[in-house]
Design a protein around this nucleic acid. Structure first.
Lengths: 248, 248
DNA sequence: ACCTGTGAACCCCTTCACAGCG
DNA sequence: CGCTGTGAAGGGGTTCACAGGT
């Protein structure tokens, strides 16, 4: 309806938008009406120039001499991030991590609903977790269709991660968040993000091994507070086109 | 003892080393003796040129016309990552995520030992989890000293994340992995990595919102398989110098 | 013949610095 | 006078392409 996204937003910027959105949400709750790039930078842990550049990709929503209207900026950002309506998420793999994610209440406040839980283990299928019942992996296509699943979260052992990814893709899921310690390949039209806990620790281990170092990391796009040694490669973070990774 | 790290290793490369190490570990288990940059690239989900550049920062461990000796390369890489001896990790915050992390067995195989569990809730302190007993946050300095904690993992609510970080730093911990949805500031000599689950989902949401996109992400340094739309900004991951983020 | 190691080109992102507007 | 929005400069990382060993 409004002006459509004009120019392509850089990947690095996209990775920071959620961080700004989080800060803006807190400001809204605190009743703050207006904020400068300098102040927002402080809250998000980046520098002011970066904030202004990033926000400029969304449009000219600031007022010179004043700053940004918190509520309006948050609205525009949420729209850009597709958070104006809740997106249904399916979690596959009800081990320790899957359980934790299923019970994590941080999602509901931030634009997502855990709409389905899935496992391959027959002894786990049927188990009740809050409002949900664990469904069988065999039912995946039905579950995805039924709940209009937008994002699939893989929390299975590494050995079956690729198989699960394939099933998610076949079922029509086009966004995947992979927590398994395995590289998975998806078609070029599927978005994939990767979080490997052991990898995070190993990166920290590297820098500990030496003297201090200066890194930068926020959602791989995720740099941390400027100034401290935020070791988030960015690889941060971490978006890659799946096309190149042909199925081995 | 051996030749010390010659030139500084780029942050982006550091974030990928753990991914290579993971692949090399699998190759070792499969009894593969030698591997080319092309093959390793396939396994790690990056391109061959990048693999060669990255490995060249470690030294000249390959053989022209042949490739790399898997075991030797893995040894050198582990040494560089400081994984030759296990590093003790403390998890602070025994909620859903803290529990999951405490029970996650992927750490022990990859160079880390969960050596201590900590919570502020008196009803949780004393609780037994596997071989460990949950200790009070008040005991943090003693626990850190006792177990020589190298890395602190924050799995608390966002509201107390900064306080926990301050306590960890005061206790002498110089590497922190933050799972809380809050920006935290640490001194410049402390390494910080950030993983925010909601942020990851929101990044995926952005790309879903539009047509497909091409991203790149491995530990923000974490890009995914080349070719697919790996939406990991890299940003990977995500290392920043804390100094800049003065305590507000 | 093959594959590594690397200088050089290229590209993206960050940072600077200031013009432009309120 | 203040703060945004942005062209331009600067830096880092990726990719190319080939020289150099085996």
């Amino acid at each position: 309806m409004v002006d459509r996204p004009r120019r392509p937003i850089p990947e690095a910027t996209v990775a920071r938008l959620p961080v700004y959105a989080r800060s803006l949400g807190e400001l809204t709750r605190d009743g703050v009406a207006t904020i400068s790039s300098e102040q927002l930078a402080e809250l998000a842990g980046v520098n002011a120039a970066k904030v202004r550049k990033d926000l400029s990709y969304l449009g000219s929503y600031g007022t010179r001499g004043v700053g940004y209207d918190v509520e309006y900026l948050l609205y525009q950002m949420s729209r850009e991030l597709g958070l104006t309506q809740d997106r249904p998420v399916a979690i596959v793999g009800m081990g320790n991590l899957g359980h934790a994610l299923a019970n994590y209440h941080g999602f509901s406040d931030r634009g997502f609903v855990v709409a389905a839980l899935i496992d391959a283990d027959p002894t786990k299928v049927g188990e009740r977790m809050g409002e949900l019942v664990v469904r069988s992996i065999a039912e995946l296509p039905a579950v995805v269709a039924e709940h209009q699943i937008a994002i699939g979260v893989i929390a299975t052992p590494a050995a079956v991660a690729q198989d699960v990814a394939d099933r998610l893709v076949d079922a029509g899921v086009r966004s995947i968040l992979n927590f398994a310690s395995a590289m998975i390949s998806v078609p070029p039209d599927v978005s994939l993000r990767v979080v490997d806990l052991a990898v995070e620790l190993q990166i920290l281990s590297f820098y500990q091994q030496r003297g201090k170092v200066t890194l930068a990391a926020v959602p791989d796009p995720m740099r941390s507070p400027e100034g401290s040694t935020v070791v988030e490669a960015d690889d941060g973070p971490t978006a890659v086109t799946a096309a190149a990774v042909a199925r081995s």
